[in-house]
Amino acid sequence: MSSATATTRPKPPPKWPYTVAGLALIGIVLVAGWSLDDAKWERLPQFPGEILQYAGQMLDGVLTWPGGHPEGQSDPDLTYGDWWLQALKLMGESVALAWIGTCVGALFSFPLAFLAASTTAPLVLRVPVRLFFNAIRAVPEILLAVIVMLPLFGLNPMAGAMAIGIHSIGSLGKLTLENIEAVDPRPVEAVTAAGATWWQRIRTAVIPQMMPETVAFWLYRFEVNIRASAILGVVSAGGIGALLNRVLRGREWEWGGIMLVVIIIVTILVDQLSAALRHRILHGAEATAVAA
């Protein structure tokens, strides 16, 4: 407790850089808010109330006995059950187009990734293939759909599947090439030392090491693509999105609620299944014998 000691106590490191960074960040956010002149901020307080009210109506739709007839529909025979079935069928279409899109992405990204990884390809190939991956990733699915796929395939789920598929090549390619580069180089070297060709090296030493992680990524991408397929519905490229767009914009909350619940349930089910499969692929198989 002496006032002055021989060794000077070090000063704490300055805090002002953090303060400045924090203030700058808040400044940027405020400027961003300011620049949005037609953001009707004054409507913000109304959101909770109105959303709750809509949610209540949605819940009504969901909880009504499926045999009942909704009011105000032109077809008097229509039941809530019809809405459920229709939503299920369209959601099935969304899942199907996401699956096909993922397959297309996997099919093309897999071989390309070997031409983009530093461990398996020369620089002259790597640079253009990586550019291609990045370029594809930078174009949103909706633009791919609008400019290329809709003219080709028309207002069909095929258009959505191909838009998602091409877009997925970029992100899957990037992840796959990272998996290839993360492979343990020592077994590859051993195979090289045994006189293997480029392809033999890849088939016997690289692919066995990176395949499980890559398949897990495919499944993960499938989950992402199911969500992405919703947006494609807005431009009528297939799936549940188109009807959801129409119904919610028409403020058919009961109908919309049923659709949202179907989306939630199917998505969660697919996610759980996919997560279980991914876990199994990455960890579970460790203990079982495999064929050569």
Binding site: D184, R186, P187, A194, A196, A205, P208, A289, A292
Partner: peptide
């Protein structure tokens, strides 16, 4: 330097 995810046979066959 074995490919740990492959079987013993698979590794020996790389020879």
């Amino acid at each position: 330097n074995l490919v740990s995810r492959r079987s013993v046979m698979g590794n020996v066959l790389t020879g």
